[in-house]
């Protein structure tokens, strides 16, 4: 594998977006890009990552390779990332290490890190990316992040309801409750403020607040978030990157009592 990002902060943002959700991951590298899937220790949140060749300045992968890493270690190396540096990832044919090369052409500076790979025996779950959903919402990632931060302070449980009035985020804590209603809107001057809802059925689902706080860490990857809900199935919270690919979080709901 030889894969070069023209801006090393892109890979840092990708890793930082899920390093607090899962501790280790297998990157599956092939000619169609880098893909990865990991499940958190409590088996409530599934992270699915896709970095297609379009995200790289140059991308080459001669044969499918699995690259297993501890995310805390990788994240430490990525503290060197800067937007003025490129980052090239190298993995040999019989991989036992990942080489990261940062290059700043202006500063005539390069940095090289090597990281030992780990053999991770992770089970892969079959996730249908075209999973049918009753409700699809596209909205501003900034707006979603603010709502999650504000409301999760009040309760461990966060409810999403979608009906004819729009989408309602609500919490009902021991000492306080809160509710935010958003209706579809189109802002032609600022399309990142658009909110669209397509719905075949109403939904009313609750999730544990702590996972939502992890999910919003990926909001640096995209201006928009796409939400997909169906009654009694995991919700999908997805951030799509400008150059293709992105990260999706499948979050199992709490049971309806």
């Amino acid at each position: 594998l030889e894969a070069k990002f023209d801006d090393s902060t892109i890979f840092k943002k990708i890793i930082d977006s899920f390093k607090d959700s899962v501790s280790q991951i297998n990157f599956m590298c092939s000619e169609s890009g880098i893909e990865a899937q990991a499940i958190d220790d409590s088996r409530v949140l599934l992270v699915s990552l896709s970095i297609p060749p379009s995200c790289f300045e140059t991308y080459r992968c001669d044969r499918p390779t699995t690259v297993g890493v501890y995310l805390s270690s990788l994240s430490k190396l990525l503290k060197s990332a800067s937007s003025s540096a490129t980052l090239t990832l190298y993995v040999e044919d019989q991989p036992d290490e990942l080489l990261l090369l940062f290059e700043e052409s202006k500063a005539s500076k390069s940095m090289e890190y090597k990281m030992k790979l780990v053999d991770i025996t992770a089970d892969m779950l079959e996730v249908d990316s075209d999973m049918k959903s009753d409700v699809s919402v596209e909205m501003s990632g900034v707006e979603f992040t603010k709502i999650v931060r504000d409301l999760t302070q009040l309760s461990d449980s966060f409810t999403v309801s979608v009906g004819k009035d729009g989408i309602v985020f609500s919490v009902d804590g021991e000492t306080a409750s809160g509710k935010v209603l958003l209706q579809p809107k189109e802002d032609l001057a600022n399309p990142e403020n658009n909110l669209s809802i397509s719905m075949t059925k109403t939904i009313d689902l609750s999730f544990a607040s702590k996972y939502l706080l992890d999910i919003i860490k990926a909001s640096t990857l995209s201006n928009m978030i796409s939400l997909k809900f169906s009654e009694e199935t995991p919700a999908l919270f997805e951030f799509k990157m400008e150059k293709g690919g992105g990260i999706g979080f499948y979050l199992a709901p709490k049971y309806d009592e």
């Binding site: 409590s42 089970d123 079959e126 995991p234 199992a252 709490k254 049971y255």
Partner: peptide, 14 residues
């Protein structure tokens, strides 16, 4: 508080 479901209930092992 409502009990939490887990992801394995919904997706098959591959």
């Amino acid at each position: 508080d409502a009990p939490q479901s887990d992801i394995d209930q919904f997706f098959k092992d591959n």
